[in-house]
Computed example of a mutant assay.
Amino acid sequence: MPRFRLTLAYNGSSFSGWQIQPNAPTVQAAVEKALGVALRQKVQVHGSGRTDAGVHANGQVAHFDFPRALSETERARLRKSLSGLLAPDVFVKELVPVHDSFHARFDADYRTYHYYFSDIHQPLFGQTTAFFPQLPHFDDMRRAASCIQGDLDCLSFTPFDPALPHHRCWFFESYFREADDYGRYCYVVTANRFLRNLVRSLVGTLIDVGSGKKTAEEFSALFRNPDRTKSGTTAPAKGLVLYKVGYDGHWKLP
């Protein structure tokens, strides 16, 4: 059966996350409903991964199957219809045919998240930027972030899940940068996978470093000696964006 890949951007503020839930608005449910209307039949959508309630996306990837191939003109028309049906919170950036063995989740080489925050109030970005006042030790935050490289045990930063064989992730990059001219900063992190609340917990603990509650060395030690009780407060969801899901082999595990 022909398979198609969607690339989606969305503002997660009004959603209870990506995955379908009973009696709660989710991105997956909204996309499936829009596809059902546009294609006039029930369609199941498979995402590259879950995003939590309030988390946004610039490059969420999903796939769905349809009984017949769609021409380029039909795909363009479908993409336009979907964006109209999903507006204003969800936008379809791309809709392309893929091999019928492609899987949005299992074929991904890496995911990149951005976390946007500022140490001054930003009324223009209230839904997408977290506010953390007084970060005098920003250089220590940068130093702590740079230690997040390679194969690391992340149990200090995610709830224990007995269903998982391990809580390790392989990190390809982790750094801070100035995001724009409005005084916002951005934490960029790329890994082969992300566990529940991992990025938000990393950011919350890095903020502790920036405010002087922890040292960069204490932060680094949490990977060598996992202890969930010693990580920082989980950062707000509104600053987090699933920026990109990569299938291009740019980063692969050694």
Rank of each mutant, 00 (worst) to 15 (best):
S220M: 11
S48Y: 01
V98M: 13
R75H: 03
D180K: 05
L82D: 12
A145E: 06
Y182A: 13
A62S: 10
A237E: 12
H99T: 08
K93N: 05
Y247N: 04
K42M: 11
P2S: 01
L82E: 13
D139C: 08
T190K: 14
R50E: 02
P67G: 15
D151K: 05
L242A: 10
R200W: 04
F117P: 00
A53L: 12
R200T: 06
R79T: 09
E178C: 11
S146K: 14
L253C: 06
G12Q: 07
T73R: 11
T51P: 00
A38I: 04
K214W: 10
T51E: 09
Y187C: 10
T229S: 15
A163V: 02
G232C: 09
D248F: 00
G36F: 04
A163E: 08
S174F: 05
T229Q: 13
F91I: 06
S101F: 09
A69E: 15
T73Q: 11
H121F: 14
F171H: 01
S81K: 13
R77G: 04
F102V: 06
A221W: 06
F219H: 00
L70Y: 06
P165R: 09
H63S: 08
D52V: 07
L35M: 05
G126T: 14
G49V: 05
W18T: 09
Q28Y: 04
T26D: 04
R228C: 09
H46P: 01
E94R: 11
T158Q: 01
G47W: 02
W18G: 00
L240A: 05
K214A: 13
K238Q: 15
L124R: 14
I148R: 03
P254R: 15
F91D: 08
L155A: 09
G249L: 08
R5T: 01
A57M: 07
W18Y: 10
L82G: 08
A76Q: 15
Y185M: 15
R177A: 15
L253S: 02
G183C: 14
F132D: 12
Y247W: 06
L222I: 01
V209I: 06
A179S: 14
F172K: 03
F219K: 00
H56D: 07
A57E: 02
K214L: 15
M1D: 09
P67D: 15
G84Q: 06
F172S: 05
G126W: 11
H167E: 02
R193Y: 01
F91Y: 12
Y243F: 13
C147D: 02
D140C: 08
S211H: 10
V45Y: 03
P162H: 12
V55L: 14
A179Y: 13
H167F: 05
N192A: 01
F91M: 12
Q127S: 15
A34M: 10
Y243T: 02
V45Q: 00
R200N: 06
T73G: 05
K244G: 10
L206N: 04
V27D: 05
R143D: 10
N11E: 14
T234L: 10
R68D: 12
T26A: 06
F194N: 02
P162L: 13
G54R: 08
A130K: 13
